[in-house]
Write a protein that binds this DNA or RNA. Structure first.
Lengths: 120, 120
DNA sequence: AGTAAATTACGCACTTTTTTGTAACCACGA
DNA sequence: TCGTGGTTACAAAAAAGTGCGTAATTTACT
């Protein structure tokens, strides 16, 4: 994780949560322990490589934990940490905001009010 | 805005808020009306191209409004919409979460507890 | 009077950088 | 030989930076 020099916590959060996968992975992990292969099944469009990279990033940030099990075949389990769990309701709130403000059933979505740029 | 096919509101929110700039721009606009050049001054490292693109994206999402004024030199004002304003406390919450859970003063940040991957 | 410069918010074409995908390879033991 | 959870190298794609051009008027200079 290339750490950007920044005094702004928002900027730092976005370093970790930005992109398509982090919030989704957190969401899948909300339901409990998952293995690498589970997460791939949950999200078939993520590539093998991206999944490892994203999981590593979340692990480095302290949002998820990674545990190796020595059994055969060897496997790994991923879980939200308590820090990660505290993040879930915040992501939920963003989803709710989207649905009521902007989503397809919202009163002011882009189809209901086609944008015209105001000129004075 | 290339609209991704997705049933998940989280995925859709992240399409708009992902990246370094969207949340920052929303933050600067929290203080009131800003012009293009103000926003560039607020954030000197964004290129003019990126600023126009990001502003357009936020406008299309209904988060900010754009108003042209006919005077000379012609100028443009940007503001948060009411929808955008409702987003501010959510972004705030993310910043707070970061600071108390992960930021430099948090008890479990990456320096206090250097990650060791657990093996069972 | 004529010309030139400055201002504001971009658009466009081109290049560079970053991110992501693809495929091959690895170890382990049943 | 399979399945697990990776790593690595190379290629493709996407994102971002750079520099130039534009509009229409005021001001500044010659």
């Amino acid at each position: 994780m290339k750490t950007l020099v920044s005094r702004c916590p928002i900027e730092e959060v976005m370093q970790v949560l930005s992109g398509r996968w982090p919030t989704l992975l957190i969401y899948y992990l909300k339901d409990g322990t998952k293995r690498f292969s589970d997460l791939r099944r949950d999200n078939p469009t993520i590539s093998h490589k991206m999944l490892t990279l994203e999981l590593r990033k979340l692990e480095d940030a302290g949002i998820i934990s990674r545990t190796e099990f020595e059994g055969y075949p060897l496997h790994v389990e991923y879980d939200l940490t308590s820090v990660g769990e505290r993040l879930v309701p915040l992501i939920d709130a963003l989803g709710d905001w989207w649905e009521e403000a902007i989503g397809p059933d919202a009163p002011h979505n882009e189809f209901a009010t086609p944008k015209s740029r105001s000129v004075t």
